[in-house]
Design a protein around this nucleic acid. Structure first.
Lengths: 306, 306
DNA sequence: TCCTTTGCTTCCGGTGGACGGAAGCCAGCC
DNA sequence: GGCTGGCTTCCGTCCACCGGAAGCAAAGGA
């Protein structure tokens, strides 16, 4: 429900708080006049988070000084806070003196219903899909204007992807992203359509009107086919996962070599499998029966699947 | 490196900070005399962590009042802190008003090298092991006196397990745990052997002398077979995963029906596959080549362990 | 060997933000 | 209507956080 649009204008508008830039040059006693006392309006928790945000996939291990510099904190302050974080286990200090994200923090994060909770129930279906295609299978949810990848099964020989578990991508360029956007609250859609659409390849949709039509098509078909929009060599087929109240809570996709490349795969053949897996997950997480289908599916039957 | 034993007695002795119990009754102005001001010696970060610790697998969603009660904080204080946590994304508030662990926290936790970093590289080997056995495959690391499960692949028809991703178990009762313990620093081993060994089934090892012999056997064979120590119906075969400097950083296991049950599996047949997978992972994460050493086991070598 | 640099840790006085009681508010229920 | 339980806001008090400065240790360079 973070930055969701059930309320018109929640406190946190949509994105995540940006990382504070480094202080202008190293000019001490410059603009921020307040010489002593803490910098204006910053809470302790805010500083703690700014420390955690310093870590990312390209910087998994940092020394105290690096943390202090990147989080724009005095070294002594960073020292104290980092010490408290490490004492609890949110950070761990390696033999080299560098700090890393700690196991304890991962443990708590694993309780997030929208990540691991979802993942656990989706896993059997993802496995099946993976077995059937032997390519890349992905599970993602939406957070603000971005898709967050919750799980990824990648065959070593499959097309190489840019996504990572825990990584983010803009919604308009990926298969799962387009699905999540197509079923997002109108406010979110308009907001994305209003902002400039960054281009990754020559095939990325950058025209809002085209994107709008694409989204309508996805809503109609219940599936998205996204060819070469992030990487010209790969194509993804994505479908929505629905939860309680029939709301779209996640999306799955299969990523295969684009048919325009040697060894490419025709997307048409993948659509049924992806859609079936998405429906399976939806049922597993408590979605109501998929409309008035001819089949009288009974959601509560403990169908052994196998 | 949390609570690791390179230093004899770090600040945090070994376990995780215990959850503070509820205040004695509801007696106000009772024992804790300090009527105003914050409770003795508690830091802001400490309170934030105490809030996060309130969540566990059995309590994934809590209301403000429940959080305040469980964390032993005044409601107004909890309200402020929870608000800051939710603003950042560490918590999310559902439509029902309850708070849950947020996606953002999971995202940061995913950067922990000992969890997701390890998992990513181990996954292909775990997949293969899963395919070969169609049972349960697990990956775990040690934190203090407990094993933490980092990944688990479970076939729907396989033996039901009590472990969960992100869950903890004492080291002496599980296959991966015994492996992790066998190769843990001597201080940790002695500490575990000195403490009472809780029993889960009639087969759980509770005698320190027996455990000591078992660990020696595991070091000798490079594999642990653990039959019915948590659940009489299941048996696990585990092997160590080594990292840089040849230190044991994780363990993997396959859990199958115990041979003493109908449909049970003879562990002997699984050993080669588990060992091979463990070696594969070790290689993938940068362990030195296994070499042909007739294992002159040196658990206590000062080697800086990197 | 001495000096410099870089980074980490400890210390301590001042103060501004955290604290939490109290009051207000809103549903749901008897 | 009155009541209960839970959530939110407000504001005066005060103490824990803050961060400059000094001390330490290790790594390089002359």
């Amino acid at each position: 429900m973070t930055s969701d649009a059930s309320k018109p204008a929640p406190a946190r508008p949509v994105g995540r708080p940006r990382r504070p830039g480094l202080p202008s040059g190293s000019g001490l006693t410059s603009s921020a006049a307040r010489s002593t006392g803490r910098a204006g309006g910053e809470t302790v928790t805010g500083r703690v988070f700014s420390i955690l945000e310093v870590f990312d996939h390209d910087h998994p291990a940092l020394t105290l000084t690096e943390i202090a510099r990147a989080a724009a904190l005095p070294v002594s302050t960073a020292h104290r806070l980092v010490g408290e974080l490490a004492a609890w286990g949110a950070l761990e200090r390696g033999a080299d003196g560098a700090y890393r994200i700690g196991l304890r923090l991962w443990e708590v994060g694993s309780l997030a219903p929208r990540s691991v909770g979802l993942r656990e129930r989706a896993m059997p279906f993802l496995e099946d899909l993976y077995e059937a295609t032997r390519q890349n299978v992905q599970l993602a949810v939406r957070d603000g204007h971005e898709g967050v990848y919750v799980e990824r099964l990648a065959h070593p020989d499959a097309v190489r992807l840019f996504s990572r578990v825990g990584g983010r991508w803009p919604l308009h360029g990926t298969g799962v992203g387009q699905v999540l956007l197509a079923f997002a609250p109108p406010v979110v859609q308009e907001s994305v359509l209003a902002a400039p659409l960054t281009s990754f390849t020559a095939r990325t949709i950058t025209d809002p009107a085209v994107l709008r039509r694409t989204l309508a098509g996805i809503r109609r078909d219940g599936v998205a086919v996204c060819d070469g929009m992030i990487d010209l060599a790969s194509l993804s087929v994505a479908a929505p996962v629905r939860g309680e109240g029939d709301a779209v809570v996640a999306a799955i996709s299969v990523v295969v070599p684009s048919p325009s490349t040697p060894g490419g795969i025709e997307p048409r053949t993948l659509v049924p499998a992806v859609r079936a897996a998405a429906r399976g997950i939806s049922r597993a997480i408590g979605a109501p029966t998929p409309s008035r289908t001819p089949r009288t599916l009974r959601t509560d039957v403990p169908r052994p699947s196998s």
